[in-house]
């Protein structure tokens, strides 16, 4: 009797553990979703918030190329993630303006992206904290490549407010 109950409990626990593991593995290694907001990727992404699908396979196989939008753990605060576009990979030369508003000849800097690093920048160069401020970021900080926008948060909120 007790043996049967214990067996059943063990079976159920195992089932739950398996389910949670599959969730974890699919979100860490295959695909996950993320909510991004802020002005730094205007006009590609909305300021008020977008839900993006992020895939983790091309990071693992080293298939990231310049032009991809990536989610990166911020080098200044490991608890935060930032979404930027890769502009250059290791070995590429980059030239950039730290303060694009003050347009003069001395504002330009150029460097070669060091080994194992990528150069990331937001699409909105006027309101983005990116590699122009903290330098090239190590490849290991990249979490994944955003490949699909699921919805605008603002339209979702609109729908919800209409519903109520």
């Amino acid at each position: 009797m007790w043996k049967n109950i214990a067996k059943e409990a063990w079976r159920q626990t195992l089932l739950v553990a398996k389910f949670l593991s599959i969730l974890h593995i699919s979100s860490t290694y295959v695909c996950s979703s993320i909510l991004v907001y802020g002005p730094s990727m205007l006009p590609t992404l909305n300021m008020s918030g977008d839900v993006l699908l992020v895939e983790h396979l091309s990071k693992r196989f080293g298939k990231l190329v310049p032009g991809d939008i990536v989610v990166v753990r911020s080098p200044l605060n490991p608890n935060k993630s930032v979404t930027k576009r890769i502009l250059a990979v290791e070995g590429d030369p980059v030239t950039f303006l730290v303060e694009p508003r003050q347009h003069h000849q001395h504002g330009y800097h150029s460097l070669v992206v060091p080994k194992g690093h990528v150069w990331i920048q937001g699409d909105n160069m006027y309101a983005s904290a990116d590699s122009r401020h903290f330098g090239p970021v190590p490849y290991g900080l990249i979490k994944g490549r955003a490949f699909c926008r699921v919805c605008f948060l603002s339209s979702l909120l609109l729908l919800i407010s209409e519903y109520f």
Binding site: P78, N79, P114, K115, G116, H117, P138, Y139, G140
Partner: peptide, 19 residues
């Protein structure tokens, strides 16, 4: 979860030059 490290901790990390 918190990234609370102290000086003297032994940590494992990805190399910045080769992930």
């Amino acid at each position: 979860q918190k990234y609370n490290f102290k000086r003297g901790d032994v940590v494992v990390f990805c190399s910045p030059t080769n992930h």
